[in-house]
Design a protein around this nucleic acid. Sequence first.
DNA 1: GAGCACTGC
Length: 713
Amino acid sequence: MESLPIVQYEDKIIETVHQNPVVVIIGETGSGKSTQLSQMLHRRGYTKSGIIGVTQPRRVAAVSVARRVAQELGVPLGEEVGYAIRFEDRTSDNTRIKYLTDGVLLRESLANPELNQYSVIILDEAHERSLNTDILLGLMKRLVKLRTSNLKVLVTSATLDGDKVSKFFSDCPILTIPGKLYPVEILYSTERPSSYLESSLKTALDIHVRQPEGDVLIFMTGQDDIEKLVSKLEDKVRALEEGSCMDAIILPLHGSLPPELQASGFHFFVRVFSPPPPNCRRIIVATNIAETSLTVDGVVYVIDSGYVKQRQYNPSTGMYSLDVVQISKVQANQRAGRAGRTRPGKCYRLYPSRIYQDEFLDATIPEIQRSSLAGCVLYLKSLDLPDMDILKFDFLDPPSSESLQDALKQLYLIDAIDENGAITSIGHKMAGIIFLSLHIRELPLEPSLSRTLMEANNYGCISQALTVAAMLSAETTLLSSQRKIEKKRKQTMSNLPDGDGLGDHIQFLQIYECWDRTDYDVGWCKDNDLQVRGMLFVKDVRKQLSQIMQKIAKGPLDVRAHGKREEKQGYKNLRKALCVGYANQLAERKIHHNGYRTMGFKAQVVQVHPSSVLKPDDLGKFPDYVVYHELIATPRPFMRNVCSVEMRWVVPILNKLKTLDVRKLSGGLGHIEEETEGKLPDLPKNDVAAVPDDPGSRIQAARERFLARKGKK
DNA sequence: GAGCACTGC
């Protein structure tokens, strides 16, 4: 601990913090900022008037750093030093230093907007710019001006971004603390390779044959490329002449590896103090999971493709896409740094330095500019701060006004805000202003699902909606990751329920109910190719949601609260609740085929994702209306997770769409340009046949049929 | 008839 560079800077840091409300700390890798800053401030009396909160973007980091600090101070974890992450609060009245995920601090500020219990807040790893960190940055800026009791804020940042953060906080001082990285030699390619897979292969073999021992870490974009490269490397290494060089183990590393494989591999090559097997080199082929989330020790050589897969949201179409994009300079440096943790290393960049200099962005586009903001805007509105205007909220990097308007439209369609943009009582409940033994808790759900819960509560199917919401929270981690198995399963018959053809939400419900009937048997998950970890997570989420809903629930919350009757009626109540909750994610089938047209956005023609369990009728037609959980362009546009809804539930939504006025939603302020796209044309008044495929035409036709029938009577 | 980087409440 004595050797940590940060120790020498203690006086300087304390003096600067003493004189300034906000300080930016540029702490390079290995500087010890995460464990030492809090202890320093604690020693110097900053925990006398309140506690020190240190945020981390990841749960594991919050836990492991807290454990470490408790150890260094020689106190039991949970006493003076504790942590708080979702599902787990290990703090007590004695806690003076509290590590927490940024999401948890965000929830806390809902209950106590001034965060009065804190004397110091350290936003650690802020340069990663998670959605939550960015919201916190804006709130902190407001808070240091507003709070009467003294608040100190420390923000850690990357070298390339420090000036920007300082400027954001009225030119606050920047302290740079050197790290303990060994020098890394950067080697550029002369030109960009036509295939970075082949180029990685060649470079890796070259290192393996010519360079002294040390592990190799290769950054690729995704599972597919990783698997291809791993198998090619294995072939080539095997083909090398026996004894001509050392052995090599090739290891894939990505998020969807089965946990046991990842764990054993992880244990095997991450052990810090034990030396790697003698005369053997490890070649790790990884996604950007190895950039920040996992640290692989023993790496001396890094091969950087210069690319990453990034998810982005298009507010005009409501569509997500997952694109391969160029990394930023900050990312490239982070990757290179992975080679210098144990001794001097080398980083092979598979692109020319000119491209790095001229084309790479300084920093990655922050998540807040790549996501749907409905949840974020609802959260800020629910804070109900008197001086808060959402469109003027001070973000370090503001999202586009188009994106904010999209969020407002979505919130309006699900009744969370009124036509003037003010939060409604439903909106408050969705955000979760629910008094629960004097605590206020936010519903940790996206707006569509919290709205569904509210509505389900009125229709007496709250327990079913809780299950669906919980299942969707873990959806991606549920199905077995091995695609081969999945294909095999499709050929044989799956024993899992099929949602009665009504869609994926219903299937999720049925799956969980099956599991419940086995008394949450782990073997049952395995038999059905469901990831045990994912299902246990669902159980946790469901329990948490039930606790939050308890005080306002009008019906039983138990999984078995519903009998066969609901099923026989085609889950009508639940689907109706989903229709209200997903009013902003509604699609109408085109008349002559099974394509759908999205409503509420600039109309897009989309297909039901082939993995959906939604079933066509006897004539091969899908239902006229569906709600979808997500639109994804891959690159063709699909609706993922759809649920069949009935036309009569859709009518009020279409009426609401007609009254939508973005200018009013934005508070009638002049600085928002008038919206032309994304607004639906009025329903056709007459002459339906002439425009058979217009949005809402089905409803109009049905209305006329209804009127005609009524006339006959 | 298609594909999934990574987090988090």
